[in-house]
Amino acid sequence: MKRILLSAAVTALLLVPLACNFDQLLAEKVMVGTLLSTPDVDVSLVAMAGGDAGTLPDGGIPPGEERITIPGQTAAFVFLATRNGEQGTPEPVSDATVRIEVQNGGTIALDNNQSGTYGLTSAFGDDSGVKYVNGATYNFVAVHGGNSHVGQVKDAPALERIEALHPAGGYIRHMASQGLTLTRPSVAGGKARTLGFVTVFPLGDGGAKGQPTYTNMPKEPLDFLQLVTATGEWQQSTLSIPGSAFPEKDSNYLVVFQTAQLGGPQSDNLFTGSTLLVGTADLGLVHTQE
């Protein structure tokens, strides 16, 4: 399966629009970059237990009601590679210096995680400098061999609220192993939708997130390159989460809907198929019934 996905990603490198910067079409370096944010979320302990919890009009929890906070985070990631001919798999670049520049908002230096990957994550209480700003322009900059390779995402999207994730009771009552459909809000002015990704995490008693039970987000760096030629799959007005995302009865799951703006190469020395994403997320709690 992984070989099939890799082949599809490499094919995506070859199916880029021909009406593009010719230098970028021939450029050797290819970049995948993401900066994705999730907010803190307060969850009522009553809701975690499947009981009726009070909520405020904005979806918050009334003062005095016991709660836990599931900390949000902003994660920055870059994969840099050198294209190996027209058919070969890109070769990771492991000795670059990588940063993200936020227009009018400073610079984020990423750690070298080897194998061509660079990243940094800010968690609850972290002052690493990884921040998300609605409407900002983000430049992903990789310096290698004395040359700067720059990708850019403009107009970072605001949070896209999914009403079904915010019922009056504070959480979604749902049957285990049953699918869940979410509807995205309409888009005004005939604008194209941002890309939308869904990930489901099981939650422990203290709100700790386990490994995802479902995601429609690409899992490997090279898989993101398919977004350049197949954005429609992630721009649908409805999102279908399979029942396998909620396998256990009387359990809690965190549904994360990530909306992201797609960007691409800014400098001539970065391949036109490079893929950059910046976005933020809406969150909802699901409690499965017996």
Rank of each mutant, 00 (worst) to 15 (best):
R3S: 14
R3Y: 12
V10I: 15
T11Q: 11
T11Y: 04
T11W: 04
P17V: 02
A19P: 07
C20D: 11
N21G: 09
L25A: 13
E28T: 15
K29V: 15
K29L: 11
V32D: 00
G33C: 09
L36Q: 07
S37D: 13
T38P: 05
D42C: 14
S44T: 08
G50N: 04
G51D: 04
A53C: 12
A53I: 14
G54M: 13
G54Q: 14
G60I: 08
G60S: 15
I61G: 05
P62L: 12
E65K: 05
R67M: 13
R67S: 14
I68L: 10
I70C: 03
I70D: 04
G72C: 07
Q73C: 07
T82Y: 10
T82R: 14
Q87W: 09
G88Y: 10
T89C: 05
P90G: 02
P90L: 06
E91I: 11
E91N: 13
E91T: 11
S94V: 08
A96P: 00
V98Q: 01
E101K: 14
V102G: 03
Q103E: 12
Q103K: 15
N104Q: 10
I108Q: 00
I108G: 00
N112D: 11
N113D: 06
S115F: 14
S115Y: 12
G116C: 11
G116M: 11
Y118N: 04
G119D: 10
T121S: 08
S122C: 12
A123Y: 13
G129A: 09
G129D: 02
V130S: 07
V133S: 07
N134L: 06
F140I: 13
V141K: 04
V141R: 02
V141Q: 04
A142D: 03
V143G: 01
V143Y: 05
V143F: 06
G146K: 12
G151Q: 07
V153L: 09
D155E: 13
A156G: 12
P157N: 09
E160A: 12
R161H: 11
A164H: 10
H166D: 07
H166L: 10
H174G: 06
S177R: 15
T181W: 03
L182Q: 02
T183F: 11
R184C: 03
V187C: 09
V187L: 09
K191S: 14
A192Y: 02
A192W: 02
A192K: 14
L195W: 00
L195V: 00
G196I: 05
F201Q: 00
F201M: 02
L203W: 02
G206M: 09
G206I: 01
G207R: 15
Q211H: 05
Q211C: 06
T213K: 07
Y214P: 04
Y214K: 07
N216C: 09
P221L: 08
L222D: 03
F224N: 03
L225W: 02
L227H: 00
V228P: 00
T229M: 01
T229I: 11
T229L: 01
G232H: 00
W234V: 00
W234E: 00
Q235N: 04
T238G: 01
S240C: 01
I241W: 00
A245E: 01
K249L: 08
S251P: 02
F257Q: 03
G263E: 09
G264M: 05
Q266P: 03
S267A: 08
N269V: 11
L270F: 10
F271E: 05
T272V: 15
S274L: 09
T275L: 09
L277H: 06
L277N: 04
L277P: 01
L283Y: 06
L285D: 05
